[in-house]
Design a protein around this nucleic acid. Structure first.
Length: 768
DNA sequence: CGTATATATCTTTTT
DNA sequence: GATATATACG
């Protein structure tokens, strides 16, 4: 805000204006440095040399980073554009920029601050030619990537059933995450994909990208590395420029990012990385926690600073989180303790078991309404789910109850069909070589250019080595095509040419409006009778008006592919609904974590893929979730859930058992998990201790609909599990089945109708 | 060439 | 249950 050191609006290259202290003398620390605790302050003031800050959840990591930038600038150790600060998400970058500006004023604008990807684009646009691209190259989104790879695999006649393009894309991305260009891939993981042709595919894909003048997400980093490695002179310029480099969420960096950092910091060696191994939740995307360990190896003189004082949560929440994460092995080991003087112990974490998903949503939103009545602001409440599909249930409930909410990271504005079409038009204007954009819109609206015509254009383009746009123009001169198709194609090419010529004189927003109108795209939706058509038209309007702030098309298109914000309902205050992954770095007074069930959380597929390693990562995710809460946390699980169209029975997540008993308050619907006797079977005990402590119950005769509670007759049972392999049993939802396996109170049952499922023994009864 | 109907696969997390 | 691709038909 108003700060004595605030600078004028002068451009970045203006040296810092002389302020209270004389230029040469070290500046006295301002209040915002003095307010820090000793460790934080050390992390801020150790500006020279490599520094590794191990920063637990809620220990003021962002504060340290922003203050450090402010301190460096205030001391005039570097000018704003000589500071490079890398974050992992756009949100973090934005927040950091705002906070630095509060400290030192508008000159913070010139700091190189952004995500790895955004910063790489900035470097690449300047040097595109050196890596075989033109500076107006397109950034492909994941949809384009898959489509392109599919085309290539089809051309190589690879069985798309056996080897889905998605899978190969994953392999390629992992290679890129490790900084491997096609020529550098050895026998590494996945090279046997598609009968060992994966590397060849990768190579073809990269070549195709180059002719399209396009780059995918991984390329942004990869091309930078290539640039730095092939052009030492360019590398040196950047090394020289960046006196100080800071990295947020360091535990989430992959190998390519690590190399990127190491190359850039070799000269000044003032690298400060902030991270927390317990919050590493992106290994599936190539992140290497090992980067933290390697840091001390590569920089033996690195100063390691631990931040362990938590300023966010109640002792109860801290204890629960610490207890849970202690189940992981191979941690660097930090002990979080409260840094808040005189804080109360705080309410226990409420853990609740319910009958099914609908009930869970009803209960959860009911709790939110109660909090609201008690005067808690809704924007201090969050619902954190493991995966996107879990959000629907809560959204519906929030809508019917009228509780305002917003979804973070849900379906994004720019991912909508009509917006992607509109973007494709603009992309083709900006970059005629963008064949993917061409194919997307060539027949939208219908111009009588179908499959066969497009194929012909495609073939000619490949044969002559030109873009499809260029090929279309050539074909409208010849008589290869039916006259109908030929005139349509010529017309489209002419329109495109005209729109392109507008770029010099007309602002982007106007071009977009004109293009969408003249192409007949708007008309297409106006004529459409489907219920979603009006909404799409609204979106298109919003799209055009959103373009207003942009002066050039290129900048806007970068924004679309890199930032992809969902600002649809960003402004409104309400409950926040998001995934655990996107919750990292945020905090709320109250946090709800539904769906703590085996197979959902921890996620089955993750476990299948990477076993124990994945389990630990899932546990870290749980840790991240709990530590988002300042004062209150709620955890819930349902006994039954509808997956696709089928009912599935589920058992509580093992993470529930891993919470410390003394910090939770257990609660379940009547009849569920034996709550009549207070607490459900074996809860809070280890799996071993629980063995044989199952509860059997019999169904009430008048049992009608599912979801009704209280219709159960419960009956505590003593002694060993009464079921044996081979027993015939009955389950209310799945019918009759045979027990095939027993693990504690969990039964593996082959049902006659519903197939094989894992079920808690308390949900089945013996049948003769 | 366009439209209508059937089908398979999807749901892990994101720049 | 929804969406994308495949197939058939007009």
């Amino acid at each position: 805000m108003s700060d004595p050191f605030e600078l004028s609006d002068d451009p970045p290259f203006e040296p810092l204006a002389p302020r209270p202290a004389a230029p040469a003398a070290p500046t006295a620390p301002p209040v915002w440095v003095e307010k820090l605790n000793p460790e934080q302050r050390q992390a801020v003031e150790t500006t020279e040399g490599p520094v590794l800050v191990l920063s637990g959840a809620g220990t003021g990591k962002t504060r340290v980073l922003t203050t450090r930038v402010g301190w460096i600038l205030l001391q005039r150790r570097a000018r704003p554009w000589q500071v490079l600060a890398v974050t992992f998400t756009n949100r973090a970058a934005r927040e950091m920029r705002e906070r630095v500006m509060q400290l030192i004023g508008p000159s913070a604008e010139a700091v190189w601050l952004g995500t790895f990807h955004a910063l790489s684009v900035r470097i690449l646009r300047r040097n595109a030619e050196l890596v075989g691209l033109k500076s107006n190259f397109t950034i492909l989104d994941s949809d384009d990537q898959i489509r392109l790879l599919k085309q290539i695999m089809e051309a190589e006649s690879i069985d798309s059933k056996k080897w889905p393009a998605q899978g190969l894309m994953g392999v390629i991305q992992r290679w890129k995450d490790r900084g491997l260009t096609p020529d550098k891939v050895g026998g590494e993981g996945g090279s046997d994909y598609a009968n060992g042709r994966a590397v060849a595919m990768y190579k073809a894909y990269q070549e195709r990208l180059k002719t399209l003048n396009a780059a995918d997400f991984g390329d942004l980093l990869l091309h930078c590395l290539t640039l730095f490695q092939t052009r030492p002179d360019i590398l040196e310029e950047y090394q020289e420029q960046f006196h100080y480099v800071l990295v947020d969420e360091y535990q989430d960096t992959n190998v390519a990012q690590y190399l990127w950092l190491r190359l850039l910091t070799q000269k000044h060696r003032n690298l400060c990385c902030v991270g927390d191994d317990d919050q590493s939740i992106y290994s599936w995307r190539g992140a290497e926690v090992g980067n933290i360990l390697r840091f001390e190896k590569d920089f033996p003189d690195a100063k390691v600073i631990r931040l362990e004082r938590n300023y966010r949560s109640t002792p109860t929440i801290l204890a629960a989180a610490s207890h849970l994460i202690a189940h992981n092995e191979g941690r660097l080991g930090k002990t979080l303790r409260t840094g808040l003087d005189g804080i109360e112990q705080g309410a226990p974490i409420k853990v609740r078991g319910v009958w099914d998903g609908a009930e869970e949503a009803r209960w959860l939103v009911g709790e939110i309404e109660a909090l609201q009545r008690a005067g808690h602001p809704l924007d201090q409440i969050a619902i954190l789910v493991r995966a996107g599909f879990q959000m629907l249930e809560f959204e519906e409930r929030l809508i019917t109850t009228g509780v305002p909410y917003r979804v973070v990271g849900g379906p994004r504005f720019y991912e909508r069909l009509e917006i992607r079409d509109a973007v494709a038009y603009l992309r083709l204007i900006q970059q005629p070589e963008d064949d993917l954009a061409f194919e997307r819109i060539i027949n939208k609206p219908k111009r009588g250019l179908g499959e066969t015509t497009i194929q012909k254009v495609h073939i000619l383009a490949r044969a002559q080595g030109v873009s499809m746009m260029e090929a279309s123009m050539r074909m409208s001169e010849t008589d290869e095509l039916r006259p109908q198709a030929r005139t349509a194609l010529a017309g489209f090419a002419r329109d495109m040419e005209r729109w392109r010529s507008l770029r010099e004189t007309v602002p982007p927003a106007e071009i977009a409006a004109q293009v969408l109108e003249e192409s007949g795209y708007i008309e297409m939706w106006q004529k459409d009778k489907s219920p979603e058509a009006p909404g799409r038209l609204d979106n298109l309007k919003e799209f055009v008006s959103g373009l207003d702030e942009w002066e050039n098309l290129g900048g806007f298109l970068d924004h679309v592919s890199l930032v992809m914000e969902n600002d649809a309902n960003a402004g409104e205050a309400g409950v926040t609904l998001m995934t655990l992954h996107s919750a990292k770095g945020l905090e709320f007074d109250t946090v709800f974590m539904p769906g703590w069930e085996e197979d959902i959380f921890p996620n089955r597929r993750a476990l299948d893929e990477s076993g124990e390693k994945a389990l630990e990562e899932e546990r870290r995710l749980a840790y991240v979730g709990i530590t988002r809460a300042r004062r209150r946390a709620f955890i819930s699980f349902a006994a039954n859930r509808r997956v696709y169209n089928q009912w599935q029975s589920s058992i509580p997540s093992r993470f529930v058992d891993e919470l410390p008993k003394e910090n939770i308050e257990q609660d379940a619907d009547q009849g569920l998990y034996g709550s009549r006797g207070g607490g459900w079977s074996g809860f809070g005990e280890s799996a071993a201790a629980r063995s044989g402590a199952g509860i059997s119950r019999r169904l009430g005769s008048d049992y009608g609909e599912f979801g009704k509670t209280g219709a159960w007759e419960t009956q505590e049972r003593v002694g060993a599990n009464e079921f044996r392999i081979g027993d015939r049993v009955f389950h209310q939802k799945f019918g009759y089945g045979i027990v095939e396996g027993i693990d504690d109170s969990k039964l593996d049952i082959a049902f006659e109708k519903a197939g094989r499922k894992k079920v808690l023994d308390s949900f089945v009864e013996p049948s003769k």
